[in-house]
Design a protein around this nucleic acid. Structure first.
Lengths: 192, 192
DNA sequence: GAACCACCTTGATCTATATCAACGAAATTT
DNA sequence: AAATTTCGTTGATATAGATCAAGGTGGTTC
């Protein structure tokens, strides 16, 4: 159950076997079924989740009922509403399950204790946050500077495994365009 | 010269007087004049900068020559191209100075050494990155779900000091709209 | 296996925002 | 202080992408 997590951690820092064993109890393993909610708007986000298997997504629903995908999280990714998790305020986002999933949950309190117990994890979390920040920044740059077609090609290149795995209308939502527009963009690209 | 930095750090972690003194030598104080570049596209971003005074901004220039502001950084903010800084690859961004500035620079190597020397700074950096990530995420949510007017009102609320301090066309660029559109949005709002 | 639903496509039309152009007011440079 | 550049505004027009509507396909459920 912890294979993917330890693999992920070992790419950024080194944990001894003992540290790995100390790490495990801080997490709550959990299985989710497709379509199940992990978080709903108005809830407080009590856990950060590491995805061992399957896929989740976070999204926002606007006043017209349109969904806007913030993040996809397949195996090896973390997902949460960091804002709600950190502040304890109700979340504006929903998180649900796209493919039957196995996740490792950790609460705010456990996270703090874990970071005390295994200080090098502070470094892991820092690197994690830094990398997420970098990809968020490039996403913003892309949104500001590129049209629908370029953004689609960008995500195909940056996240090929995700782009090919999620329903097209969700990818459209992630890109900030309508499903119709994405369909037309794809048609255009096929011609070339 | 270190007042703003220490103030900022003390909001997230506690440093002893000795630690503060140990911290200083890792930084290079530097002054920049308005309109000066701190980083240009194609350069490698050698420093992360903490702004003690003045204001900088990072932006991307697209193929049509349009500027897209990624970030504004007044006093108390950090700025860099994290991607280039971390990987050592050439940057796609420019960073320049909007108001005469005093900054504290730190190189990749100094940062690593600093984190070794004062481990609690690892925590500070983690919190810093996490908070940046949160604001980036809400910016993306805003871009996906809101129109020009709502985004303008959003930035007025979220970053009032910045929104009122930068030229309007740069704020437009930050919001992903043209200066003309921002001008019209403002006119609309004045009527109400 | 029939009914239903989620998903994608295509066409027609609409709209928010971009683009182009011109002007006046500040601000900066000489 | 004259000249020049930068900045914001306004109007006219263009356009990328949204919206509305309909139909087709494949998978899921009863």
């Amino acid at each position: 159950m912890f294979e993917v997590l330890f693999e992920h951690i070992s790419k950024k820092i080194t944990l001894s076997k003992e540290e790995e064993d100390k790490l495990k109890p801080f997490f709550i393993p959990k299985k989710y079924r497709k379509r199940q909610y992990m978080l709903q708007q108005g809830d407080i986000c009590k856990y950060i989740a590491f995805v061992e298997k399957g896929m989740l997504r976070s999204y926002q629903v606007d006043d017209k009922g349109n969904e806007h995908v913030i993040q996809f999280a397949p195996e090896g990714w973390w997902i949460a509403d960091n804002y709600s998790f950190l502040t304890g305020n109700p979340s504006n986002y929903d998180i649900d399950v796209l493919e039957d999933a196995e996740v490792l949950l950790i609460t705010q309190a456990s996270m703090e204790e874990m970071l005390q117990t295994i200080p090098v994890m502070e470094r892991y979390m820092r690197i994690l946050m830094q990398n997420s920040l970098i990809s968020m920044q490039s996403r913003i740059a892309c949104t500001l500077g590129s049209n629908a077609e370029e953004r689609y090609q960008g995500v195909l290149k940056a996240l090929p495994n995700i782009a090919q795995r999620v329903p097209q209308h969700m990818l459209a939502s992630f890109l900030g365009i309508t499903p119709e527009t994405l369909s037309r963009v794809r048609k255009q690209l096929l011609k070339k």
